[in-house]
Nucleic acid binder design. Structure first.
Ligand SMILES: Nc1nc2c(ncn2[C@H]2C[C@H](O)[C@@H](COP(=O)(O)OP(=O)(O)OP(=O)(O)O)O2)c(=O)[nH]1
Ligand SMILES: [Mg+2]
Ligand SMILES: [Mg+2]
Ligand SMILES: [Zn+2]
Length: 634
DNA sequence: GCCGTTTTCGGCCCGACTGTTTTCAGTCG
């Protein structure tokens, strides 16, 4: 039920904003995704040419690193800080410099001349890597990009592929299947919202737990790290009888196709709904190392394994062993070939590290920080004392969407969440349809309505036993107009306890203009919070550009707070920006932006974003008691 | 090609599975 209400809501939001996408794509020379793609192509080309595997890995790492970069690489280049990006050194930095200055990299162009363009198209087919792609292009003489996939498909249908050396009937079929997956857009690269993936994983885990063979089953990979979007569903299964557990899982009715199946370790399937599911099986005595491995991230694992190697230890999902029979670790040399770990904490401790929360395992500086015993004590959901961004169904006649639940319903829900305070911040009345006087009246009526509702809800007999929040705040989410003006006037602002300002239009303004607009919008003393600060919609559109140094600086000096909006397709401020804000000392507020009581619990996703941004209790203002909060908010 | 509170040279994670192979390369996680 939770699920449906959100999906319906997402749908209606998406249709509203779809027309904006095209406008947003313009005016950038090279996006991070485009640069990442180029580096990926370089890695593939080197692989085909049998170059040094470490150089290939370096390009792959650089590519991933840019995909995850906190800012536009172009801006980082402008600031002369390319070297700060992990995995980017002197050499790649100079190539990127050339790219931004001239629009191309001669060295790469030369390299690509050696590879038929069709190869890079074939790489999109699952199961087809650089070597296979190159062989196909050469042997079938399909070199052009144009119609490459269609021509490959025809060749396969004619049985031309199995004639190639080292190919056969099965690999030909695999390629045809791969093409069909590609055509249907069911690729792993097509990611899903964390919220959606959670629900999917829960269903599978419920099914698994019904088996007597299954002791535990856990969502891992990006799901456990709480990444905003998730590529596939990774689940580990703890069992004493892997064979039986595998058999049991294969009876799950939503499986469309088994891609890979091992004896007792792994099953990989595709569901009818198109998502890939990876299961790893492990026994209780070594389940800890499986949790560690399968949680990732890949880069975290690599760095952790390199860290261990310096101590002559080798890590895997099976445990820890010595590289040589060295005396560095007596425990391992004495008869034991590999040391088992029931839980993860001991696995990290054995390496001399504090246990690292999954949200931090992105291969940045978490290992070093853990080694120094300096890991942050991350904010937790139970520390959240209130929600400051809710849309009730009180009709303020806005031009954006109305909430679906009443003030009373939301108050009761807030009580059951143990909140101390709640802030109602509906969209402002539409400017085009109302006079200033009408806008004022509407806002005034809402203020009175909230107060009445609060007391009447409190007094209702059937609500006895439910503890309502102690404080209800009257707020608004106010549009920042393209010129930076607010959509309500001074008089209205003065009725409010505090207000949120958000950008809901003209997303394609240039960085400087947008920054000025936002700062102007924030400048009124009643405006305390910048709502969904980047305006991104996950899987749909990038956010607008802002000069973050200016924004952070302004917030710090003027007592303004950046929202972490928990709405599942926003998660905005994004985790990487949260990390920067925290470092800067800017305080944040985690809000649900609920339009329905069922959505109030989604605030947990905002908490996950905060945690991924290394935020502690002190960084989050709605972890304060009301007294503390009122000092800075009211 | 990247990287460095014991290194600016000499290291670089480790394993499952598949198909086509008589012993393993390629792809993926
Ligand atoms: N050691 C090691 N572990 C890996 C590697 N690739 C993947 N893993 C581990 C860590 C990953 O988090 C986990 C699951 O792999 P996935 O490809 O599903 O990645 P992840 O779930 O992190 O991201 P995703 O949202 O699926 O794209 O497996 C690798 O190359 N080496
Ligand atoms: Mg995954
Ligand atoms: Mg996976
Ligand atoms: Zn909004």
């Amino acid at each position: 039920m939770l699920f449906n209400s959100l999906i319906i809501h997402l749908d209606c939001r998406m249709s509203q904003s779809r027309c904006k996408i095209r406008q947003m794509e313009k005016n950038k020379s090279f996006s991070n995704q485009e640069i990442a793609k180029i580096l990926e192509k370089v890695a593939a080309a080197y692989e085909i040419l049998d170059k040094d595997r470490f150089r290939i890995a370096a390009y792959e790492r650089a590519s991933v690193s840019i995909q995850h970069a906190t800012s536009e690489v172009k801006d980082i280049w402008d600031d002369d800080k390319l070297d700060d990006i992990p995995g980017i050194g002197k050499s790649i930095a100079s190539y990127l410099d050339e790219l931004f200055r001239t629009g191309k990299v001669r060295h790469f162009e030369e390299l690509f001349k050696k590879i038929p363009p069709s190869v890079f198209i074939f790489l999109d087919i699952p199961g087809v890597g650089p070597k296979t792609a190159y062989t196909l292009a050469e042997k079938l003489n399909i070199r052009e990009e144009k119609n490459a996939i269609a021509r490959l498909k025809t060749a396969a249908q004619k049985g031309k592929i199995e004639e190639i050396e080292n190919f056969g009937e099965k690999s030909e079929l695999d390629i045809l299947n791969g093409i069909s997956v590609l055509e249907k857009g069911e690729l792993k690269t097509k990611r899903m919202l964390l919220f959606y993936a959670d629900a999917l994983a829960d269903e599978i885990i419920d099914y698994l737990k019904k088996s007597n063979e299954v002791i535990r089953a856990d969502p891992l990979g990006s799901l456990r790290r709480k990444v905003a979007t998730v590529g596939d569903i990774d689940i580990s299964v703890c069992t004493n009888n892997p064979q039986k557990a595998i058999e049991y899982f294969l009876n799950y009715k939503k499986i469309k196709e088994v891609i890979s199946r091992g004896e007792e370790s792994l099953v990989r399937v595709v569901l009818f709904s198109g998502q890939q599911v990876d299961l790893r099986f492990s026994t209780p005595e070594k389940y800890g190392s499986m949790l560690q491995y399968f949680t990732g991230s890949k880069q975290h694992n690599i760095l952790l394994r390199e860290f261990a190697l310096k101590k002559d230890l080798s890590l895997s999902e099976y445990g820890i062993k010595t590289v040589k029979n060295l005396k560095t670790c007596p425990e391992l040399v004495e008869g034991l070939k590999i040391k088992n770990f029931k839980d993860e904490e001991n696995f990290y401790n054995f390496l001399g590290l504090e246990w690292i929360p999954p949200e931090l395992r992105e291969g940045t500086e978490e290992i070093k920080t853990s080694l120094n015993g300096k890991l942050p004590k991350l904010i937790e959901l139970k520390e959240i004392k209130g929600d400051l961004h809710l849309h009730s169904n009180f009709n303020l006649e806005p031009s954006h969407d109305l909430g679906q639940s009443s003030v009373g319903e939301m108050l009761i829900q807030a009580g059951s969440l143990n909140y101390e305070y709640l802030g109602f911040s509906e969209h402002n009345p539409s400017v085009s349809n109302h006079s200033e006087r009408e806008i004022y009246d509407l806002i005034m009526r809402k203020k009175e309505f909230i107060e009445q509702e609060y007391y009447s809800t409190k007094n209702k007999d059937y609500e006895r036993g439910i503890k309502l929040p102690k404080q209800v705040l009257n707020s608004l989410e106010i549009d920042i107009k393209p010129n930076g003006n607010l959509a309500v006037d001074e008089k209205c602002l003065n009725i409010l306890d505090y207000a949120i300002a958000s950008v809901h239009s003209s997303f394609n303004q240039k960085r400087e203009k947008m920054t000025d607009r936002v700062l102007k919008g924030l400048s009124h003393p009643k405006i305390k919070i910048l709502g969904h600060p980047t305006g991104r919609l996950l899987l749909e559109r990038e956010g607008y550009e802002l000069d973050w140094d200016k924004i952070f600086d302004f917030c710090l000096k003027n007592n303004k707070f950046l929202e972490i909006n928990s709405w599942p397709n926003r998660l905005d401020l994004p985790d990487t920006k949260v990390k920067e804000a925290v470092k800067y000392g800017v305080k944040l507020v985690i809000n649900s932006d609920s339009h329905h009581v069922n959505q109030m619990a989604y605030l947990q996703y905002g908490v996950s974003v905060a945690r991924r941004g290394w935020a502690e209790k002190k960084d989050i203002i709605n972890s304060l008691s009301f007294e503390g909060l009122s000092d800075i908010l009211l």
